[in-house]
Design a protein around this nucleic acid. Structure first.
Length: 115
DNA sequence: ACCGTGACGAGCA
DNA sequence: ATGCTCGCCACGG
């Protein structure tokens, strides 16, 4: 699949990738970018979310690669994201999504729905 | 055109 | 785990 060219299309693809994250699971910015056909463009994914206005977009399911919430702790965005994630049954502790411990498939198991 | 900034990420100390 | 550097790139000043 060819990489997206116009910024408009990149934005469209990134939004589609975010909408594709199932409720109860999360994805990293870089992962979203990859799924959008834009490897290495995590910052673009972040920018797109920052400018999004669609209230139906599940932006709260996107986290940093280390599982932490990207907003500064205590900010309104931080609190809102925490709240929305918990409402979907995602475990959040100290601004970071709780992953089960132990070896597992890195992608699906780590970022998949809480077990 | 240059530079600082940012809802980032991988690598390395 | 924590912190830093560097790569990435769109934007605003």
């Amino acid at each position: 699949m060819a990489a997206a060219s116009s910024s408009e299309e990149s934005t469209r693809r990134i939004l589609a990738a975010v909408r594709a994250i199932p409720a109860g699971s999360v994805a990293g910015y870089g992962e979203v970018a990859r799924r959008a056909g834009l490897p290495g463009r995590a910052r673009l994914a972040a920018r797109v979310l920052a400018g999004n206005e669609d209230p139906a977009l599940p932006w709260h399911r996107v986290l940093r690669a280390d599982g932490r919430i990207a907003f500064p702790e205590g900010s309104s965005g931080y609190r809102e994201q925490c709240r929305r994630l918990r409402a979907e049954g995602v475990r959040v502790e100290a601004g970071r999504v709780r992953r089960a411990k132990g070896p597992r498939d890195l992608d699906e198991a780590v970022w998949g729905p809480e077990q």
